[in-house]
């Protein structure tokens, strides 16, 4: 069986939706009695009942497996299910970047992703970058340069900043890249453009830029 068919929707939830669909389409599909013996045609509408599925991924090197509502976002899975509250919920619509985490080494907005869609993925949150006693260089640079005030956007900023430098190194162009075919350079203009998906309400941008440049300088 392939990796992608190893999920399960609970039978009851599938029955309910299947019954509603079959009734409206006039099809015999899944039109069997539900687990409790109720008539499938009288089952509640799908939007009254949660469907669940099995979720299995690795977070900061630790395998995790649990059953969740299909609606659970990766962000809520991290914060509510796994109590990894370093990743923050800001807008919950992919506009602010506070929820930025790495999935298989690439930065994404955890709020715009379903937990059930991450079967087998390797997820890294800010908790996986470093600890107070052993900080990641980017974490240390944010502290050194005072790259925050309230700190709410900071975990997302740090994850995004690390990815920004990796994307430049990998040759991913940006909107401000002058020559698409020349080697990419770490410049203040490039960092600002590539970090535009992370909003800082306190306006610590100048210090964030200093922190990212500091780390970039140390790497080159």
């Amino acid at each position: 069986m392939s990796q992608h068919s190893r999920f399960k929707i609970t039978r009851r939830a599938l029955m309910i939706v299947g019954a509603a669909s079959a009734a409206s389409l006039g099809l015999p599909r899944l039109a069997t009695a539900g687990r409790d013996g109720e008539s499938p045609t009288s089952a509640p509408a799908a939007d009254d009942k949660a469907a669940t599925a099995e979720v299995a991924f690795t977070v900061n090197g630790v395998p995790r497996r649990f059953t969740a509502d299909t609606r659970l976002t990766l962000l809520d899975a991290l914060r509510e299910q796994l109590q990894l509250t370093g990743t923050k919920k800001g807008c919950d619509h992919g506009q602010c970047g506070a929820c930025t985490v790495m999935v298989n080494g690439r930065r994404v907005n955890a709020c715009l992703s379903l937990a059930v869609m991450h079967e087998g993925d390797e997820i890294t949150t800010v908790e996986g970058l470093g600890t107070p006693d052993n900080l990641d260089p980017m974490q240390a640079a944010f502290i050194e340069h005072d790259g925050y005030q309230c700190g709410y956007c900071t975990p997302g900023q740090i994850c995004s900043a690390k990815a920004t430098l990796e994307e430049i190194r990998a040759g991913v162009p940006s909107h401000v890249t002058a020559d698409l075919n020349a080697p990419m350079k770490v410049t203040p203009e490039e960092i600002r453009e590539r970090m535009s998906g992370n909003i800082c309400r306190c306006g610590a941008y100048a210090n964030i830029l200093d922190a990212v440049q500091d780390v970039a300088g140390g790497q080159s």
């Binding site: 970047g97 930025t100 930065r107 907005n109 715009l112 992703s113 920004t164 698409l180 535009s196 998906g197």
Partner: peptide
């Protein structure tokens, strides 16, 4: 798509349009 060397070399308008849209996080997905 934006970073593919063939797209950057031969279809620059496409690479430019892609990186003009959304944010780095969104373009990754």
């Amino acid at each position: 798509l934006a970073a593919d060397p063939r797209v950057r070399r031969d279809y620059g308008v496409l690479s430019r349009a892609l990186v003009a849209g959304a944010s780095g996080q969104l373009r990754n997905k």
